[in-house]
Design a protein around this nucleic acid. Structure first.
Lengths: 142, 142
DNA sequence: CTTGACCCTGCAGTTGACTCTAAGGTTTAG
DNA sequence: CTAAACCTTAGAGTCAACTGCAGGGTCAAG
């Protein structure tokens, strides 16, 4: 009896915490691949679990599935355009780096907000209801 | 003739690079506010430009408009629950911090990928077409 | 041989953050 | 005074990344 080895979709779902539907969706985008048994079931390689975990990780960092697809495809073709691959990854890395910079700057911003609020209760004499006083007087050509 | 001072929506759009429609949408969510002239036009305070820039910034860092709304509301009510405000901001800051950590780790991951690709051309004897060979042999109860 | 767990497909619905269109009023430059 | 540029609302459409459902097949246990 010739049968298929591999994880069924539910097993992958359990091991990764990703919903069955989501896995099918990933497959429809070509992010992961499966073989089919004669029953029509999908069977996945064990390494698929790693791949899915990679996807989750990348996703929480703001990469789109399309982005992730590029990287994964690259990772699995492997043979030919290794230089293209490198530059693609380098792009992502640079992107990430820039984002980290931004985040640190923004964090500093928020800390400033926080500290300003910690000390000065009513900021000298700012607008309470921010519009009321501004909506009158006179027109100037904008 | 009593008329309204302030920026019209197009001016804010031009100064921030955010579409008119998006600004209206922000307003519908209460992220920014306007006064209305008797013509029905929205008029914005100059500081709205800063606010919108803040929104953009926060957005590129993965905050939802709802998140951002919390922070902005906090920033503009100001008077009463200052401790609540502080903890809210502190949450966002911690969140950001955690994300920065993750990103750095992930960046390291990607760098590893890149370097692995730079050196080992065909990884010892991995799967070329990742499924073909795995889809046969024998069944074991999963 | 039926029950329950699991799998399939196809398609509709959801959420967030918009954009686009229609149908119309206003303002401004010439 | 008219045309272009700008504003209004309401509502539909879009895109990503799913979730949920209907309707049906498969498989292991008892």
């Amino acid at each position: 009896m010739e049968v298929v080895t591999g994880l069924k979709i539910g097993a992958v779902a359990r091991q990764t915490g990703v919903a069955v539907g989501a896995l099918r969706y990933y497959e429809s985008l070509g992010l992961i691949q499966s073989g089919r048994g004669q029953n029509g079931y999908r069977y996945y390689l064990p390494q698929t679990v790693q791949q899915v975990q990679f996807i989750k990780k990348a996703q929480t960092l703001g990469f789109s599935l399309e982005d992730i697809g590029e990287v994964l495809h690259v990772h699995q073709q492997g043979d030919v355009p290794c230089e293209f691959v490198r530059s693609l990854l380098q792009n992502k890395i640079d992107q990430l780096d820039a984002q980290i910079q931004q985040m640190m700057a923004f964090k500093a911003d928020l800390e400033q907000y926080r500290d300003r609020w910690a000390t000065a209760q009513p900021p000298p004499s700012n607008n309470i209801c921010p519009l009321i006083d501004s909506i009158s007087i006179d027109e100037s050509p904008n």
